[in-house]
C-alpha cells in the first residue's frame, strides 16, 4: 500500500440545495477511511463543480442532492466532464433521488445512487472497489 496515491474524492453540492448534513457525514466518513476528501461547499453550478474536479485532480466525484433538481443538473455536469476530458473520473450520487429516476441517471454515466439510510460503510466499500486505479 505504501507510496500509493490516496483516492481523491470531491463531494459536491449542485444547485441551490443547501441540505449539507448528509454530504458532510459522507465526506467525513470517506476521510476517516483514509481518502483525500475535498468538499465544495454549498450551491455550486455544474461549471464550478467540474472546474474544481479538474483543479483538484480527483478520481471520484460524489454528488449530494436532496432538492429534486437532479434531473436538471446532473446531465449538465456529465456533459461538462466529457467536454473537459474527465471521462475516467467515477461519478456517483446520493440524497433524495426517486427510484424511477435512477435508470436515466445511470444511462448518462452516474455509476451508482445511494439513498437515505445507507451506511457510510457501504459507500466507502463502493469507492474502494470502483474508483479508477491510478498511481
Amino acid at each position: 500500500m505504501q507510496g500509493e496515491r490516496k483516492i481523491r474524492v470531491l463531494i459536491a453540492k449542485p444547485g441551490l440545495d443547501s441540505h449539507d448534513r448528509g454530504a458532510k457525514v459522507v465526506a467525513r466518513a470517506l476521510r476517516d477511511a483514509g481518502m483525500e476528501v475535498i468538499y465544495t461547499g454549498l450551491r455550486q453550478t455544474p461549471e464550478q463543480i467540474v472546474e474544481t474536479a479538474l483543479q483538484e485532480d480527483v478520481d471520484v466525484i460524489g454528488l449530494s442532492i436532496l432538492s429534486g433538481a437532479h434531473m436538471a443538473l446532473f446531465p449538465r455536469i456529465m456533459e461538462l466532464l466529457k467536454e473537459k476530458g474527465l471521462t475516467d473520473v467515477m461519478v456517483f450520487a446520493g440524497g433524495i433521488i426517486p427510484e424511477e429516476d435512477v435508470p436515466e441517471l445511470k444511462r448518462i454515466g452516474i455509476k451508482e445512487v445511494f439513498g437515505p439510510g445507507t451506511p457510510t460503510e457501504n459507500i466507502i466499500k463502493y469507492v474502494l472497489e470502483n474508483a479508477p486505479k491510478r498511481s
Binding site: 444547485g15 441551490l16 450551491r43 436538471a72
Partner: peptide, 22 residues
C-alpha cells in the same frame, strides 16, 4: 421554493430546474 428562499426570481439562471420543486 429555492429560488424564492435565495432571493432569485423564477427567471434567474440559478433558478433553472428549481422553480416550484421544493
Amino acid at each position: 421554493d429555492y429560488p424564492t428562499i435565495m432571493g432569485y426570481d423564477s427567471d434567474h439562471p440559478m433558478a433553472k430546474g428549481e422553480v416550484g420543486v421544493c
